[in-house]
Structure formats: C-alpha cells, structure tokens
Design a protein around this nucleic acid. Structure first.
Lengths: 217, 217
DNA sequence: TTTTTTAAAGGGATTTTTCCTATTTGTTGA
DNA sequence: TCAACAAATAGGAAAAATCCCTTTAAAAAA
C-alpha cells in the first residue's frame, strides 16, 4: 500500500488518551492515516485555514470546551462541505444525534468504539458517503415517524427563539421587545407551547429545553 | 518484577476504546496490573461480591448509564472502604469534584490523561493514600476559603428542599403544603434566596440549581 | 436574666404569569 | 380571486409570583 493511497483523517477531540489511542488505531488500518489532531474547533479551523491540511474525513467529538462539535460542524458545512464529518459522542439521546445530523455530519458514532466498527465506519464513509450505526438508524426512523414525540420538537424559528429567551431571567415583556413582537403574541407562543409540551409553567419549559438540548447551561 | 508484587487495578468505564487503552497503559506500568474491567457500577458490584476479585485501586468513571460514579462511590465507601477509588471524569466543575470527594474518593483525575500523570497518580495513591491533580487542589482550596462564592452554597436543609421543589412545576402554595409551612414562609425563603443569589425569578433559581448540581435533570 | 438572632408568619400592594376568546393580517393554493 | 390557514395581535380577568415591611415565638448568645 502506497502512502498516497491512504485516506487522511483528522481527529478533533480534547481527551488526549482517547484521541491518542484513536490515532494509533486508525494508523493501523490499511486504508487510513491520521493527518493531524486538534483539541477543539478553533485549532481545527487554524489547521485547515492556514496550511493545506485538508483531510478526507474528520472525526469530531461533540463535547469540547472551546468550540464544540455543533459549532464546528456548522462551520465545516459552510466552508468545507466536501470533507466528511463523523461525529463522536457519549450522548446517545435522540436530540443530540438529530441536531448533529441536521448540521450535516455524514455519520454518528457513540464513543463506545470497537476497532472493527470504526474501520467499517471509515470505509463506508469513503465508499457510500455516509455511515450510521444501528442506534442512529433507529433514531432516524424514529424521527421520520411523525408521531407525537417528534411533532413536539418541530419548532418554528420564532418559537425556538422564544424558548431560549424564556430560559433566561427576562420577563415576557422584555422578550417581546427583543423579538420585536407584541407581548400578546409572545403570550400566544407561551400558551401554545405549554399545551403542546404538556407543561404547567415556565420552570417546565426550562427543564424541557435543557433535556432536549435546546439550550446549554 | 514478580506478578504477585503488582498492585491490582479495576477499571469501571463504559467507553470501550478509552477503557481498552487505559488497560494497556496500566499494564505497561511496572507496579500495576489490571484485574478486571466493568462497564458500570452494577457489573463492579457483581465482580466484587461474587468472586474474590478485590482490587487495590478502582478507576471509576463518573458518567455511566446504569449506575453512575456517584452511586458507585457511595456503595464502595460503605462496603469496601479499603479499596482506593480514583475518579475519572470530563467534568472539571467545582461542584462535581466536591461531590465526588464527599463520597470518599481518594483522588480525582480529568479524563484528559497523560501516561506519566496516570502512573504518578497510581503510585501516590498506593503510597500516600491519595492523589490530587493541580486543578483539584485548587478546587479544594477554593472550597475551604469561606468567601462569597462558597457561602452562597451553604444552604440550610429547608432551603435546599425548597430549591429542589422550586425546580419542579409546583406552585409555591403546593410547595408550602408539602413542606408543611405557611406560604408566607416559603415566600420568605424565595425572597432571601433571590437576594443572596442575585437572581430575578424562578428561572434564575432553576439555572442556578442545575449549575451547582443541586438538582439533576 | 436580658439581649440578639433566627425561623416562621402575616398584611397589603404591585407586577407578572397564565388562561380564554376573538379579531386582523398575510400567505398560499384551488 | 376567494377560501383556507397560520401568524400576529387584542381585551379582559383570575391566579401566581414578587416585593416591602412588620410581628411573634423560640432559640442562642451575652
């Protein structure tokens, strides 16, 4: 096997032991080699912007302190849509997975990685252009099934903004001002959401938003 | 080096790649060897209860699905206080660290592990009986320093109960009933806390409680 | 014992939240 | 063009939350 024939992979993850063994593992694969390793999204940007380090695949951890996986994936899609991004995360909740998929990642792997699975994932990524583990496929099916659950989470842009602002200490009146809407409209959003989500008050909304990852702490 | 002379270590972590390389790493240390590997607290319990697998040290991940690090540490302290537990976690926030220390763990390591650091940690654990990274030492100092920050977190039992109930969808009146106090008293708690914590409304209280780990989602 | 502190309650007022119902405006598709 | 639908807006009112100030009783400190 020639060096030039190997596909290049970049790792973005701030856990050194994990990322380190990941690198060794990938380098042991016949068709892949690690191009570089970045500790967060910002480092990745620098590597990609400055040098000519354009990997074929990026393994992207979601939980990073500086610029997390969501932001990084967004940036990648806008600036380098041809690089295939594989999301890595411990989170196996539906919302997190869906959020990443919406950002345009080509695959999603739970961090409970087995060597063979990772190799398969990389191969399929280069081959078919995507890879999804069983768990993620389930999630996808689930989300396409327009039952109560997922309908709940299909928020309009304004609603989402409202929810996020309602999770601050702002008054509804203040939220109305910021969103340039009448307090009555805001009250309408509130009322609708309370019904749809079957919650009783603003505390319920905050809890909901946190569980569904609509806001961060 | 004789096999018998090696200290035994058990790993409790559900991330197979990470735990796998951790195991290899530890086995490469002159004085330590991995006795077994459990995916969560329950598996650990079984191994310890059934067989005679009593390790000297347990490396305990905090984030596990079935029986997390907090519960496991608690159980270990009550049933096998002589086993030294080293907590592993990505969380570097003060509250999480303190919570684990209170459970009785003998050390705390951020998961961004470097091989030399881990070896040092294990050696010191067997030698001095404890190990704390710089970050954790800082946290300890911080928590001993009775400045504003920590004073904030010194809640009376009733206040804590109130905070936790206020993070539900209950009305203050309902909270009063549950706590067997007058609504006016509850209002007093509320008012006090809003001032002390410099928050404006109940949403602020929920956010605070979550950040400080006074409640779980 | 007297003073101080603290937890628990109460009175009363204002603002915010929450709930209901109805109207206007704008967009979309038949 | 007109019906249909959704988004934005309104009015009114009850309930809850918030704020400020006082009082009582018991416990702790002096």
């Amino acid at each position: 096997m020639t060096k030039e024939k190997k596909h290049t992979v970049a790792i973005v993850d701030d856990h050194s032991l994990f990322a380190g063994s990941l690198e060794k593992l990938i380098n042991s694969f016949p068709n892949f080699t690690v191009l570089f390793h970045a500790k967060n999204g910002v480092e990745l940007q620098e590597r990609i912007e400055n040098g000519n380090d354009l990997p074929d695949i990026i393994l992207l951890d979601i939980n990073m302190p500086v610029m997390d996986g969501f932001e990084t994936a967004e940036w990648l899609m806008q600036n380098h849509p041809r690089i295939k991004t594989l999301a890595l995360s411990m989170e196996d909740d539906e919302q997190t997975i869906l959020r990443m998929l919406r950002k345009g990642v080509k695959g999603y792997l739970l961090k409970d990685i087995h060597p063979e699975i990772l190799n398969t994932a990389l191969e399929e990524l280069m081959d078919k252009g995507y890879y999804h583990s069983e768990k993620v496929s389930e999630t996808l099916l689930h989300s396409l099934n327009p039952d109560e659950e997922s309908a709940l989470l299909d928020f309009k842009e304004n609603e989402l903004t409202f929810i996020q602002l309602a999770c601050s200490e702002m008054t509804y009146k203040e939220i109305a001002e910021i969103m340039n809407l009448s307090p009555k409209t805001i009250d309408g959003y509130r009322h609708d959401l309370f019904n749809r989500l079957k919650i009783k008050n603003r505390v319920g909304l905050v809890i909901f938003a946190l569980k569904k990852n609509l806001i961060k702490l």
